[in-house]
């Protein structure tokens, strides 16, 4: 099984699999919004706790290696972004300044605090999104999208792309190994050429696959709609109320705790 398909497998083994996908989506979106609304640095920690709890309950923190690498990459980007924010100060006390080419660089206490806030928000947001992703396979998400009356054509396209995306990735993996067996990656230029050839091959394969898929779908009486046999639960009022309640509580907590934790004060004497 390719690593790309492991996320899907994980979602199907989740304890939260048959929870209302739209309810889960609503909950996650509202938590993410609450995560962004206030300036309190404590709110991202609550968001992180929610995300980690979801991941723990859903799949005991099981994350496919491929996804873990992607998360680490996202974390690295967040850290770089937070670093850039920290040296883009415009107000507050200047903690450190420098010049790079024609650019003046200032790290202020405001920008320092902002950078930490952004980093925490980002990490917390990732945890919540992972909690959702590890518990909701795409067919369930598509069911949720149908419930919010997204055009059926778009929903069906999502399902088809999802299904055939994996097959194309598997084929690409086979082509990659076949090319490697024939020394297709010896040298930088040859690697680029081989990668381009694989890309072309995959594109042609995708058209062939689409053609065959259309035939196979017709053979099974496809009527423009992928029916779900075991549909997840529908979103009820309790989901809406619960999500709204959590969101409101987080916002109130955030408003009450704004400025309580100051990262500059915490690091004062250590870094500055």
């Amino acid at each position: 099984m390719s690593e790309e398909t492991q996320m899907d497998t994980l979602a199907y083994s989740s304890r939260m699999l048959y929870w209302a996908p739209l309810g889960k989506l609503l909950f996650c979106v509202l938590v993410l919004i609450a995560n962004l609304v206030t300036e309190s640095i404590l709110v991202p920690f609550i968001t992180l706790a929610i995300g980690l709890s979801m991941m723990a309950y859903s799949t005991n923190f099981k994350i496919p290696f491929f996804i873990a690498i992607a998360l680490l990459e996202a974390l690295a980007i967040l850290i770089i972004g937070a670093g850039l924010i920290s040296i883009s100060g415009e107000s507050g006390n200047v903690l450190w300044e420098s010049h790079f080419l024609w650019i003046n660089i200032y790290m202020t206490d405001d920008s320092f605090n902002k950078a930490w806030l952004v980093l925490f928000r980002g990490v917390a947001g990732m945890a919540v999104m992972m909690g959702f992703a590890t518990s909701t396979p795409i067919p369930h998400l598509s069911q949720a999208l149908r419930q919010v009356h997204l055009p059926v054509e778009i929903v069906e396209l999502i399902v088809l792309i999802y299904r055939y995306g994996f097959l194309l990735l598997e084929r690409m993996e086979i082509m990659y190994h076949a090319a490697a067996c024939r020394m297709g990656f010896n040298g930088f230029l040859r690697s680029i050429k081989t990668t381009a050839s694989i890309g072309v091959g995959i594109f042609i394969s995708s058209t062939n696959m689409a053609d065959k898929a259309q035939t196979a779908l017709s053979c099974r009486n496809y009527k423009g709609y992928f029916p779900l046999y075991r549909a997840p639960a529908k979103t009820g009022l309790k989901w809406i109320l619960f999500s709204a309640l959590v969101c409101a509580a987080m916002i109130i907590f955030g408003l009450e705790t704004e400025g309580i934790v100051n990262m500059y004060e915490l690091f004062k004497g250590v870094l500055f």
Binding site: I138, P139, R163, L167, M209, A216, R220
Partner: peptide, 8 residues
């Protein structure tokens, strides 16, 4: 693989 569309 041409015939199986669903996830389970």
């Amino acid at each position: 693989d041409e015939q199986i569309f669903s996830s389970t």
